[in-house]
């Protein structure tokens, strides 16, 4: 090999490494920047006053985001209550009951559901769900229940695809053994398949939670964005993501730092959830 080719090879290798490092670098920079901007406020105001503070009035020096943390978890929980049973039964249907043709049609359709932009979900929620809730349940309609409903639909594709994968990895022999013992299909599913796919299904729920808690557009359009802890399912609320999205465009000074610290809290929650989910997915079902 000539020297020039050698040189070129080394060059190409370095280019690849540099670009490969870019994702690492991005993530690293994201942490550094967010922490560098947000942490000083934590030190100045105090962690306790931010995370457990009830009052958010950043221009007056109050940075309590406790109501938003609670609201974020409430809508996420609500979304799970709606999305989890639907998603899980859809996954069971796809893997156990549907024929090949239906599956060929349904799976891509569900993936398309994931492709619909969140702002469109939000818009449909504003036009259809909010008036529905206002007319039949009362309140302004911008509420915990409408937000949970929309988020529940939005996390369906995540839950379905991951629990479907978990259920299909259960070995066929399990099903055959169960059927040979005279168990009905429902007994097989309930007593054999679901327990052995448990970790994957749980992971799908957790990932769905992660998606719901990080969701912004649909939430700010439907949640009503009131700054308090909701006391009923018809109360408006404001989530962590909504807080950032609504105020960052015009925030300055400490107000801006307060929003960055909101971002830190959000990031920590999401990473914890993803870590949990990863743990669930990695644990292979017993062979």
């Amino acid at each position: 090999m000539t020297d020039r080719t050698m040189l070129k090879e080394r060059f190409v290798k370095w280019v690849l490494i540099t670009f490969a490092l870019s994702s690492l670098l991005f993530l690293f920079l994201i942490f550094v920047f967010i922490l560098a901007e947000g942490l000083p406020l934590f030190l100045k105001v105090g962690l306790k006053k931010i995370i457990f503070g009830f009052k958010w009035a950043p221009t007056k020096g109050y940075f309590g985001i406790f109501p938003m943390i609670v609201s974020s978890f409430l809508v996420t929980f609500g979304a799970l209550v709606i999305g989890a049973p639907l998603g899980l039964s859809c996954a069971i249907y796809l893997s156990e009951y549907s024929g090949k043709k239906t599956k060929m049609f349904l799976k891509p359709a569900l993936e398309l559901l994931a492709g619909i932009p969140s702002v469109v979900y939000g818009f449909l929620g504003v036009i259809y769900i909010v008036p529905l809730v206002r007319n039949y349940l009362g309140g302004s309609g911008f509420s915990l229940i409408s937000t949970s409903l929309i988020l529940g639909v939005m996390i369906l594709p995540t839950i379905i695809s991951i629990s479907f994968d978990a259920i299909t990895t259960v070995p066929k022999t399990y099903r055959e053994a169960s059927a040979a013992m005279g168990a009905t299909k429902w007994q097989t599913i309930y007593k054999v398949i679901l327990p052995s796919a448990k970790s994957g299904i749980l992971a799908s729920f957790i990932l769905g939670m992660g998606r719901a808690i990080g969701e912004t557009m649909a939430v700010i359009m439907i949640a009503g964005n009131a700054l308090k802890i909701p006391t009923s399912i018809l109360d408006p609320l404001r989530t962590l993501t909504g807080n950032i999205a609504l105020e960052l465009a015009y925030a300055t000074g400490d107000h801006r730092l307060g929003l960055f610290s909101t971002g830190i809290v959000l990031m920590v929650i999401i990473m914890a959830l993803n870590y949990l989910a990863n743990f669930g997915i990695k644990r292979k079902p017993a062979k």
């Binding site: 994702s23 690492l24 991005f26 993530l27 920079l29 994201i30 920047f33 967010i34 992660g210 808690i213 990080g214 969701e215 912004t216 993501t241 950032i244 999205a245 960052l248 929003l259 960055f260 971002g263 959000l266 990031m267 999401i270 990473m271 993803n274 990863n278």
Partner: peptide, 16 residues
């Protein structure tokens, strides 16, 4: 990192 980046909510990326 790629996995973490994938899970990062879009709004946090917006902040960056």
């Amino acid at each position: 990192c790629v996995i973490v980046l994938q899970g990062t909510p879009s709004i946090v990326i917006g902040i960056i």
